[in-house]
Each structure stands twice: as C-alpha cells, then as structure tokens.
Amino acid sequence: MKTLKDVKVGETVTVVKLHGEGALKRRIMDMGVTRGTEIYVRKVAPLGDPVETTVRGYELSIRRADAELIEVK
C-alpha cells in the first residue's frame, strides 16, 4: 500500500482511500483531501517534516504521520 508519506517531492498522486476515523479523518477530508483528489507534493520542510502539498489549488502542510493515513496511487 502506497501512502502520501512515500511520495517524492515533485510527484503528483491521486487519493485512493483515507484511513483513520472520526476527527482524524474528518479534519483531513474537510481540507479537501477526498477520494480521487490529486495531490502534488511540493516540498519538504527544512527539518524533514512536515511536507507541503498542493491540493485543490491551494497549499496544504501535512505531517508525515498524518500523510501515512492517506492511501494514494
């Protein structure tokens, strides 16, 4: 299973499924990360975490631990 955590900078992926439940899942989905959404991994913070992505035309910062919940292809 490939997750957003494994995606390299500069790649664009599509969301397959979101893991987790309740607040965890809802917060990520509220920000526009839903099934079928394209995510472009823009860059990694200087200390290696979090990552900056482009989702639905805006910039979203997400921690690696949370990115692991997002299954992509």
Partner: peptide, 10 residues
Amino acid sequence: DAAPFVMELP
C-alpha cells in the same frame, strides 16, 4: 485527541 496537524499555507 489525535487531531491531525493539517495547516493551510496562505
């Protein structure tokens, strides 16, 4: 809670 840290970079 296990709220994720997702943040918009305006």
